[in-house]
Design a protein around this nucleic acid. Structure first.
Length: 276
DNA sequence: GTCTATGTTTGCGG
DNA sequence: TCCGCAAACATAGA
């Protein structure tokens, strides 16, 4: 679930916890697959005794620089959570990796569905090199976006979800952006006019910034939902216009929002505002 | 208890 | 290039 705004919120919070520059004293891996094929022992050896020097986000990845020169990349996939708590509280049921900093604190990776992954590598590009442009980067201009669309025949929504095309959008913000721009998700990318392309470009920026301002989207009240710092809920749910708003009136024209399936993903549209 | 859906990504076959 | 499907898993809700 975590998309760009949720991942950025986590990164911002983590940066404030003070774990940066503290020496790692222990590494516990309770579910081997989480560390993406790396040997558990090697993984621990390469992190212990070092400290994190930097943290930032690229697409939906959390990127941590290590004093050893390696990079630890973390992808939360559907249900992953990353938070800092005290060093000695017992490991919770779905906490698969715990990185301890003396008796100060511990960074914990919690993931009910176990799809999330951590990658430890000397060459971060091996993991994130394939990613497309950052949608909030100044380099991602309306002109560039229009040219990118012109080269592709795919349906626009699956294309927006393609991380090698553009990095950071997921199902929530893709639906929100398409509704905001009044574009049908099944339109072929190259058929968008320059005006439509500009409007979509603007909408992508707007929905992401709104999500960021609201500390991400927490859906419903279930277990598998987005919590940053492991406990706080994002409040962007209250600002969603179409995502999971099936049968509720479109905020623009009052037509009921419909749920359809596009590229095997549930998709929410207003038939009136988003014509083919 | 059973069945279905789920926010992501990757890889395969056509 | 594009599309559909399956898999990696656990849980919530009907």
């Amino acid at each position: 679930m975590p998309e760009l705004p949720e991942v950025q919120t986590i990164v911002n919070d983590l940066a404030e916890t003070g774990i940066l520059h503290q020496v790692v004293s222990s590494v516990q891996v309770a579910w081997d697959k989480t560390i993406a094929g790396l040997d558990k022992k090697k993984f621990g050896r390469k992190i212990r005794g070092h400290h994190f020097t930097s943290i930032h986000r690229r697409g939906k990845y959390i990127v941590l620089g290590l004093s050893s020169g390696d990079t630890l990349l973390i992808h939360l996939r559907m249900t992953g959570r990353l938070y800092v708590t005290d060093a000695n509280s017992p490991r919770l049921k779905h906490e698969h990796v715990i990185i301890g900093f003396g008796d100060q604190a511990a960074l914990r990776f919690h993931d009910t569905r176990k799809f999330g992954r951590m990658y430890l590598t000397a060459n971060a590009d091996k993991v994130i090199g394939h990613l497309g442009p950052e949608p909030l980067d100044a380099c991602f201009t309306p002109d560039k976006f229009f040219q990118m669309l012109a080269a592709r025949k795919k349906m626009i929504k699956p294309l927006l979800l393609d991380q090698s095309f553009i990095a950071g959008l997921g199902n929530i913000y893709a639906d929100e952006a398409l509704w905001t721009a009044g574009i049908h998700p099944e339109r072929q990318a190259h058929t968008l006019s320059e005006t439509e392309s500009r409007s979509l470009h603007k909408a992508i920026g707007a929905v992401l910034r709104l999500g960021l301002e609201n500390f991400g989207t927490t859906l419903g009240g279930g277990q598998a939902n987005f919590l940053y710092n492991g406990r706080r809920k994002g409040r962007n749910w209250d600002y969603l216009k179409v995502f999971r708003q099936t049968d509720l009136p479109c905020p623009r024209c009052r037509q009921p929002i419909e749920r359809i399936v596009v590229g095997q993903r549930s998709t929410h549209i207003c038939r009136e505002c988003q014509k083919r």
